[in-house]
Amino acid sequence: MQKILLKENLNELIKTWIKKYEIIAPVKESKISRFKKINSPNEIYDCLLTDIPAKTHFMPEGETLLEHKDKKTIEIEGKIKKTILFGLRKCDLNAIQVVDKVMFDKNYINKRKNTTLVGFFCENPDKYCFCNSMELQDFYDLYFYPQGKNYIISIGSKKGEELVKHLPELKKEIKIPNPKNFKKLNTLDIEKYYRDERWKADVRKCLSCTACTAYCPTCNCFDIKELINSDIKTIQSKRFHSSCMSKNFSLVAGGKSFRDSRTSRFKHFVFHKVLYFKKQKGRPMCIGCGRCLRVCPTKIDWVNTINKMNRKPLFNFSRFSFKKLKETNK
């Protein structure tokens, strides 16, 4: 079902929502755009892609999971007020769908239940975006598409329908196009490239600074740390983001790190995003927002590297042996 709204009336619609819901929307603060609670629709900053993704709403850094107090342990269930996440692009919406498939704990699910996702069509994509090659799906509660003087609002769920009950219905449904892209990932089947020599150039540039995983909207890996309060009476188990690009990610007691070299860590990141998650859950984890390419301090472009490999499969000299050739000729 689709509904229609005049562009001028959007602010008023948001004002009616603010009375009942908490609204989290893209805001620009000291040169960084991020999702934050707003009090009036004028605060919304219309940007290409927020620098910091919406995952911080569901999994804030240092969120408390358990509290130990007076020999008792309490689970913090993450109950929040009814919230609207406003202004999500198609990639951000899909990122939430991806994270839904891996997070099963009470805290996350409670937060997710009370949140309505309101998407916005991406009119001016970034130069790093390649979302059309990542098999994105339509996943939203509401989705705004600007057309002339109006917004066309697609409704994806009952949660979304409640927000726009009073608006007039569109008689003829319009098909919403995909956002434009300047970049493309040519293939998702990259299993055969695991031992390709051309990863070397990328790995050499990598600093293991973990910026790519911090900014990735689908990166959900975490670490649980126990912090003791200064009054020495309460202890809190807190969840912190953790990155597969750092060496201590796979460190076990006794000092063994299972992904010891930068090569294996870099490849695990790329292959998990594109290939492994697809094998596990049926869709690629990467949603093509290009944040990892944008924030990388050494400008590593793994998308280009895969495209290069796809264009020209390299003959692997390291595996080729002249001895064997001679033997077979004999």
């Binding site: 891996v102 997070m103 099963f104 704990d105 959900n220 890996c221 975490f222 670490d223 649980i224 953790s242 597969c244 990610f249 796979s250 460190l251 076990v252 299972f258 695990h268 292959f271 998990h272 290939l275 492994y276 998650f277 094998k279 596990q280």
Partner: peptide, 16 residues
């Protein structure tokens, strides 16, 4: 290394 035990912290992955 395991933090959660049910497949969401992602730390114990070996490829897929």
């Amino acid at each position: 290394r395991m933090e959660c035990g049910f497949g969401s912290c992602g730390r114990c992955q070996i490829q897929d």
